[in-house]
Design a protein around this nucleic acid. Structure first.
Lengths: 227, 227
DNA sequence: TGCTAAGATGTTGGATACAAAATAAAAGCT
DNA sequence: AGCTTTTATTTTGTATCCAACATCTTAGCA
């Protein structure tokens, strides 16, 4: 068994789907961009088959839109849809948090604390992409105690959508200090067992992110429309 | 244009995925049953390719579990997972209902009323499968006014999971009268604009379904384990 | 007899080749 | 010229074939 990695062997569609997902989330593949299987197949130097599967998967995830016999494109959400995504996040995250808090133990708190530290480091280093990942990890860590696997999977999917827009504007995000504070406060309130206060803070935390983002995206799109 | 159906042409994977979905939801393909591509390919008289795609899609939907190079099986949920599915339904449906009620107009109410009637007819005819579909339609109709497309898509997916278990036991469901009443009351409360009362009723409506179902499934599984 | 290792079998994953559909372009008609 | 119809091109969808992986069986050995 020595040296044998325990990693489940990834198939080509897995690898490709992951890579394409990253490319979409990072904005390398822009909203609305049309997708041609053959072009991607050539790029990855594989046949169209694994590409197809990867695209279909991304389609199911909502990152790609596919039409029979007509190909596909990178999903572009309207402003109200982006708002909706954040409302969903809020709804589900608060529910998870509420279930989680009473069950959190010292280990959970320690783990959150650990991530929080790394987050603030990456913060000062201005390492945006790392911060995004850690932010996601932190939120997840807050909810693990809830022991709701299906709900968390659902949330991961939704977060994937919102991440797209968060990342798009993370670099221009000015006032990060309040977010930093809020993250700490969330943990402290959870520690104190103040369930309702914590949930309320989480709600407003997500709402603030939503509002800031919508504003930025709106102005960005207005710019693009002008040109 | 005459005679030309406006239906978007369905590809083989579409048709097959729909059929397989129905077979899983109806219980024809039982929980945990292993799936072999070739067997299905022969059955539908197509190559394995569209079967593969259909299975991958069902996998993404959560109805089938797939392992690389090792094939797949029909997803089997634990009791707590089934409970979780219903909690998710409750969370999302109530949110949608709350947003929907203030926006509902005469047309929405009429549509709900219409479905309700059909539902009660199918009810008396003891047409279980039709009732299931109408039940789903009714709930959806209550939420259309909310104008939350993404959320409703999400709900549809979750309902797909719960439908599996609802259908499994719909035939043995005894006391349907309370459900019938509740469905009427939901609409009436919405009409009266009593948002919180309506949401509360919806919550308890789903909770009751959940509890009844969990009990039934638990005893059924206990039986099966004995044998 | 019990264990390990090599082979056989079956099943899935991926590549190539062909068919069908959609779009774009060109020709014909009024 | 403007419109319709036909042809050509491009792109996706499906079938068939081969390769890789997993499991089961059997042979070899202590």
């Amino acid at each position: 068994m020595a040296g044998k990695r325990a990693i489940t062997r990834q198939s080509l569609p897995d690898v490709i789907a992951n890579d394409l997902r990253e490319r979409i989330l990072s904005g390398e593949l822009a909203e609305g961009e049309t997708i041609r299987q053959e072009a991607l197949a050539e790029e990855y130097d594989v046949s169209r088959m694994p590409i197809r599967e990867a695209l279909k998967r991304l389609n199911a995830e909502g990152l790609v839109q596919w039409t029979n016999n007509r190909g596909g494109s990178v999903t572009k959400h309207s402003l109200s849809e982006i708002g909706e995504i954040f409302d969903l996040r809020s709804l589900i995250e608060v529910d998870l948090f509420r279930r989680s808090i009473p069950k959190m133990d010292a280990g959970d708190f320690a783990r959150c604390e650990e991530i929080l530290k790394q987050m603030e480091t990456s913060y000062d280093d201005n390492d945006v992409s790392k911060w995004g990942i850690l932010n996601h990890e932190y939120h997840s860590a807050l909810y693990t105690a809830s022991d709701r696997k299906l709900t968390q999977e659902l949330l991961d999917r939704i977060n994937m959508q919102s991440d797209r827009y968060v990342r798009m504007h993370l670099s221009v995000m000015k006032q990060r200090e309040p977010a930093k504070m809020e993250h700490r406060d969330l943990l402290q309130l959870a520690r104190d067992g103040k369930v309702e206060d914590a949930c309320e803070l989480l709600t407003s935390h997500i709402r603030r992110t939503k509002e800031q983002l919508l504003e930025m995206i709106a102005s960005k799109r207005a710019d693009e429309a002008q040109r």
